[in-house]
Amino acid sequence: MSRRDVRLDAVPALPRLYAEALANQVRTKLTGSSGALVLPEVEHSVDGVRADVPRLEAYQQLVGDTVRPTLPSVFVHGTVFPVAMSVLAARDFPLPLLGMVHLSNQVEHLRPIGVDEALDVRAWADKLRDHHAGTAVDVVCEASVGGEVVWVGTSTYLAKGIWAGQRPERRRDRPEFVAPVQTGAWRLGAGAGREYAAVLGDYNPIHLGALPAKALGMKRQIAHGMFLAGKALAQTAPREGGYHWDIVFEAPVLLPATVSFGVATTDRLRSFEGWNATSGRRHFHGAVRPL
């Protein structure tokens, strides 16, 4: 299956994409044309993407990573993801971008990526599928340097309450969460979302403040999933060589918050979890495995 290449001049700005997506959603609502739930056969691409060094340093400081001239995996994500958003915000994308829930990520970080390396980025949507709460879709981003793929990230999103076919049975209840051994406590202020947005440009309103979050149906503003992933990886990601990591998001982190964090290592697999010690609900879990 070959996809049509939509070549972009530069990495698009997320606020503009959010605005376009909003316009698309409003138009869809007005025209009532939901259309069939079929993914377009396109990939959006930008060549020669370079990391912004001050932004990199700001990111590394924000998540507590070591400041060094290689790109943390979540920073790569933040840099290239607007290309994927371009796919999601396009008129031909069948699901409403705004209000989609970020479910999980899986990333192959194939080798350390230098800050001065030019990344050629491709992004496409894949595996549209039913989910008990709606329709899930994978958004894949791939970054390569001179033809060598160095980073592949798959983000899974959920469009709630939209089904292509039959609504699947609700999955059986998850086993009750038992908190692992705590190894960390993250104190996140009410402005944590704004701080992350200021660094990586993801100004999704649900992260910014109580009022915009409420407007979108959240109790309060919530932490960026990728901010949580970034903090987890700052601790757990290997300093050398390539690695695979994944993260699954569960209860959102309502800001401000103290997230209890636990890391455990068995053989080469380093797994981590974040939870709320008061409510006993898990926010996320994931793992890092060196390649």
């Binding site: 507590g64 051994v181 190894t183 406590a185 104190r187 601790q235």
Partner: peptide
């Protein structure tokens, strides 16, 4: 007195060890 990398106080760290 929090550990910079974990955000946990020394006492909370030790509490985990003590329990373990």
């Amino acid at each position: 007195t929090g550990e910079p990398r974990t955000g946990m106080s020394m006492g909370d760290h030790q509490a985990v060890t003590t329990a373990a």
